[in-house]
Amino acid sequence: MIQALRTRRGLVVIALAALAIALPLLTQAFDQRYLLSIGTRVVIWSIAAASLNLILGYGGMVSFGHAVFFGIGGYAVGILGHHGVVLGWVQWPVGVLAAALWAAAIGALSLRTRGVYFIMITLAFSQLVYYVGVGLEAYGADDGLNISRSRFPGLIDLRDRAAFYWLCLALLGLVLWFSARFANSHFGFVLRGAKSNDVRMASLGFPVFRYRLAAFTISGALGGLSGVLLANHDAYISPAMMSWVKSGDLIVIVVLGGMGTVFGPVWGTVAFFVLEESLKPVIDLFRKGWGEYWQIVFGPILILIALYAKGGIDSLLGGRRDGGGGHG
């Protein structure tokens, strides 16, 4: 704690964490419930981005289908709930496990390929699940399904927006703590080594494929967790939650925040949502009614980020790049 105060990053993290913890009280005081909903989404998307960061940021695996885990986690909650299994103690582990199993299966196939082929095969597998969702007439097909939130009797009521927010925030804290441990572990170092030169790592005797598959599976499981949370936040599931555009958004977030950094996914998510929510009113200032066309500005911003912003937001915070976490 004291040590964290010495770096700019540490100060920002502590200030933001304090703000994040106080958010439900603030939104209640100022009667801005919409803001709490956005805050919850930011936290959930941060978990998803952090899970993608494990493989994309640290492992250099450009997975273009990560939103599929939103879908798997979400549909696990929705489908179980639809059949009367409403206990969160059942729904949540099933969601996370299903995501982990699917990640292990597609990872075992996808990781045989390299480069562009890997990008495309992960995209294809996520489209596959997307179309399974579209084809499930019993669970709403394209229109999706309204679901009831998971029940944790005697422990927490997820319909309480503030309590649910704090639960998500606590889980995000755990995921970030795990990322930091992960990055600096033996496992993380092998993965980062393989990112910069997998032939060398293999020559050194590391079973690179197995390390990558394990990372892919862990990443999928955490992605599934974010899907479970997202379904509980929206009380609604639909194939749109795993559309390929969402996968693209997740990549954007990870790169924007800073790949292979512990807090990068959080910065990226915050920036992404702030951009989305603020571009509309800002454009409206210049020309009334044009705010709905915010993506015409957002698109070129992405191009500029891709071309010029190598280190992401996290690098702006300076300090020791390896403090607390690693970088790829």
């Binding site: 015409i296 698109g299 911003i301 992405l302 891709a306 071309l307």
Partner: peptide, 22 residues
């Protein structure tokens, strides 16, 4: 983008899609 890695290309051309759709 020619000299960039695939990730940058994915990002930038994803930005182009958003731009053109809008």
């Amino acid at each position: 983008l020619y000299a960039r890695d695939h990730l940058d290309q994915v990002l930038a051309t994803f930005g182009l899609i958003l731009f053109f759709n809008e």
